[in-house]
C-alpha cells in the first residue's frame, strides 16, 4: 500500500501518534485536550495503538491522584516517519498531476495536493 500504514490512516490515531512523537511522553488529559476527543475515544485509540506496539501506556501517581502517561514506542516513531514519507510522496504526486493537467488542459477544476490517501 505504497508504504502507507493502515493503522495510521485514521485521523485520531495519526494525531495522537504524531503528538507523542514530538515529545518524550505526555499526560492522557493533555493529549485528549489537544486532539479534542472524549476520554473514551482516546482510551480506545490508545488501546489500539498499544496493541499494535506503537504506543506505551504508563500509569502512575502525582501525590494521591492517578495519572496516565502515553509515549510513542521506537517502532511507532519509525512507522510514523515511514507513513508520513509515503503521504509526502502521494501529496507531491497529486500536486504534480494537478499542475500537469492544469498546464495541459487549462486550469479548470484541478485539485492540487488533494488525492485520496487510501
Amino acid at each position: 500500500m505504497n508504504g502507507l500504514d493502515p493503522i495510521l490512516h485514521q485521523p485520531t490515531r495519526l494525531t495522537v501518534l504524531a503528538f507523542l512523537s514530538g515529545c518524550q511522553e505526555a499526560e492522557f488529559s493533555v493529549v485528549r485536550d489537544y486532539c479534542q476527543v472524549s476520554d473514551s475515544v482516546l482510551s480506545k485509540t490508545a488501546a489500539g495503538l498499544e496493541t499494535a506496539g506503537y504506543l506505551r501506556v504508563r500509569k502512575g501517581y502525582v501525590g494521591k491522584r492517578p495519572r496516565t502517561w502515553l509515549s510513542a514506542t521506537r517502532q511507532g516513531r519509525t512507522l510514523l516517519t515511514a507513513h508520513l514519507a509515503a503521504l509526502q510522496q502521494l501529496a507531491a504526486a497529486a500536486e504534480a498531476a494537478g499542475s500537469a493537467s492544469g498546464s495541459g488542459a487549462g486550469s479548470d477544476g484541478s485539485e492540487s495536493g488533494s488525492g485520496d490517501a487510501g
Partner: peptide, 26 residues
C-alpha cells in the same frame, strides 16, 4: 464516538498538516 468513527476520509495533504501541527504542539 460516532462522529469520530465517521471522520475517516482525509487527503494526504490534510494528514501531513495534521501530523505537522500535532508535532509542533508537543
Amino acid at each position: 464516538d460516532q462522529q469520530h468513527e465517521q471522520s475517516e476520509e482525509f487527503t494526504p495533504a490534510q494528514a501531513l498538516e495534521l501530523a505537522r501541527r500535532a508535532r509542533a504542539a508537543a
